[in-house]
């Protein structure tokens, strides 16, 4: 209160954002939780049912399968996207002709919308006449490879698509981090006889520790929220083998109008991300103390 009296102008200026934030972010979060405890008829009655939606959820094998798919995707995609982003950053950090061009090229897919990305890759990977299929046919491979409809290959395809689409973002973060490492460190190391691998191992990677923690943090959250590219490319198929948690939420809330169970499922996702984020934040603060 004291603070408010001391600098009223500051708080007045914060007020509009605060109001919008409360209304459009905080209120829906609370409302979502309330819905998760209700039998929620969109145009009819809303009755309080306690934890019933959650109990129903935990008894549904499809729900657990979706949770597992989401975790699996996170476990696989985070290391791949972080490492690929890091390697791309190293690559485009090398002084060479066309450096700006390559930086732009690797970042470019990031600016495409998910629908464009999905359509392009469906055309590339589709069976019986997709681009890859046609190329394989041309070099004599007659066997059909079902990139999008085999339950294992579908995951490989989704990882490939996601990497192509979003690795550029991590690359940019790493690239910025690389600029912060003083050139003198490399000079001194070179004079002391360190080879390229040693410079990478003892200067670059430790110097990027804080960036890495940030990139991993953001990537885990993004990976947990995976939905659109999977939904558009495989539809969650074959036979639900790639259904993620957000798709489960979407199908319940917006196809079947079961808002209660849908909201409950989104709170489970929220809890998962929240716990992982807490762990991450502790890691970040220890990294800051260390670095």
């Amino acid at each position: 209160m004291n603070m408010v009296r001391r600098s009223p102008a500051t708080y007045m200026m914060l007020l509009p954002f605060f109001v919008l934030y409360m209304y459009f972010t905080f209120y829906p979060i609370v409302k979502g939780f309330i819905i998760s405890l209700q039998d929620y008829q969109i145009l009819g009655e809303k009755t309080f049912v306690g934890w019933q939606n959650y109990r129903q959820l935990f008894a549904d094998p499809t729900f657990w399968a979706s949770v597992w798919h989401t975790v699996l995707f996170t476990l696989l995609s985070v290391p791949i996207l972080v490492i690929v982003g890091f390697l791309l950053a190293l690559l485009v950090n090398v002084p060479m002709r066309g450096q700006t061009f390559f930086r732009a090229v690797f970042f470019m897919p990031m600016i495409l919308s998910v629908s464009v990305v999905s359509s392009v890759w469906t055309a590339i990977l589709g069976s019986y006449g997709g681009l890859v299929d046609a190329l394989l046919n041309a070099i004599g491979v007659k066997q059909q490879i079902f990139w999008l409809t085999d339950s294992k290959l579908a995951w490989v395809s989704i990882l490939l698509i996601t990497t192509w689409w979003t690795a550029g973002f991590n690359m940019v973060l790493y690239l910025a981090g690389l600029q912060e490492i003083p050139a003198e460190h490399y000079e001194a190391a070179t004079i002391d006889g360190a080879n390229a691998w040693q410079r990478l191992r003892y200067i670059t990677i430790p110097g990027l520790r804080r960036v890495t923690v940030l990139v991993v943090f953001l990537q885990i959250i993004a990976s947990f929220k995976v939905f659109a590219q999977v939904y558009l490319v495989t539809g969650g198929g074959p036979a639900g083998a790639t259904r993620t948690l957000i798709q489960y939420i979407y199908e319940h809330a917006f196809n079947q109008f079961l808002f209660g169970p849908g909201a409950a499922a989104s709170y489970v996702l929220f809890a998962m991300i929240f716990i992982v984020s807490l762990l991450q934040l502790r890691l970040i603060s220890s990294a800051e103390q260390g670095g």
């Binding site: 469906t122 019986y128 006449g129 079902f146």
Partner: peptide, 16 residues
Amino acid sequence: IPPNISNIEQVFKAKK
């Protein structure tokens, strides 16, 4: 019916 036809109309139009 071969497995995994991702676009059933496309292959019919392509005379496959």
